[in-house]
Computed example of a mutant assay.
Amino acid sequence: MTLEKSNIEDLEEIFKLYKQASQFQETKKMVVWPSFSKEMVINEIKEQKQFKIIISNQIACVWAIAFTDPLIWGEKNKDAAIYIHRIATNPNFRGNNLVKEIVEWSKKHAKINKKEYIRMDTVGENLGLINYYKKCGFEFLGLSKLNETNGLPAHYKNATVSLFEIKLT
């Protein structure tokens, strides 16, 4: 297993994983991801903020990071944090605790970038997902109703989000 930066050649597979994630969300009666902008993902790749886990020469999982997230985190955005977004796992690799691998990678990446927190959100109050993220080391901070969502993907419109954080020591 390797964790590395995504590259432009991964674009088709990234969008395939997003589509599979959306289909999975539908089966679980969760908030479903919209179609994400290709330009957004290309920019993340260029800015080296899109990552992947490779297992047996296959992309097993992808995610993106940001170092600022004011529309979701409000006042807490002033903290030095890394924000994880859009974790999408290849169905062939579900159940392999890949989020725990992302957390361990994020701890190292956060320290290199002098960040004090690892943060993540998910739309809605999905108790199964909340418990899973807690098992991965996140503290569940509760629910937050988003006020200003212009500039965020469509599934955030009028949304309540579950907020998660790991404070690094």
Rank of each mutant, 00 (worst) to 15 (best):
K19P: 00
P70M: 13
T122G: 08
T68C: 10
I118D: 03
V41Y: 01
S22W: 01
V32E: 09
I112E: 15
K100V: 00
P91M: 10
Q48G: 06
V103A: 00
A88L: 05
S106V: 02
A66Y: 12
I82F: 13
Q50W: 02
A66H: 12
W73T: 09
E39Q: 09
S35Y: 13
N96T: 07
K107P: 00
A21V: 01
K49C: 07
I65L: 10
F67A: 05
V103F: 03
Q58A: 11
K107W: 04
K49F: 00
I72R: 14
I112Y: 08
N90F: 01
K111I: 08
I112W: 05
M120G: 08
K111T: 06
N97T: 00
R86C: 03
Y83T: 03
E39D: 09
E75G: 09
S106T: 03
I118E: 05
T27N: 13
L98W: 03
S106N: 01
I112P: 00
R94S: 03
F51S: 11
C61H: 07
F51K: 10
V31Y: 06
S37P: 02
N96W: 13
A21Y: 00
E75Q: 15
V103E: 06
E26N: 07
I87M: 12
V41I: 11
A88M: 09
W33S: 13
V103C: 08
N43R: 10
K115A: 06
E104L: 08
E26A: 11
E39L: 10
A80L: 15
F51E: 09
I84D: 04
E44M: 10
Q20V: 04
M30D: 06
I118G: 02
A66S: 15
K114H: 12
I87N: 13
H109W: 11
I87A: 07
I84C: 01
L98F: 05
S35A: 15
I87Y: 05
D79C: 12
R86K: 14
N92V: 02
N43W: 01
Q23R: 14
P34T: 15
S22D: 05
K29V: 08
V123T: 12
I82Y: 11
I59K: 08
V123W: 06
M30K: 03
L17A: 09
A80Q: 15
W63Y: 06
E101F: 00
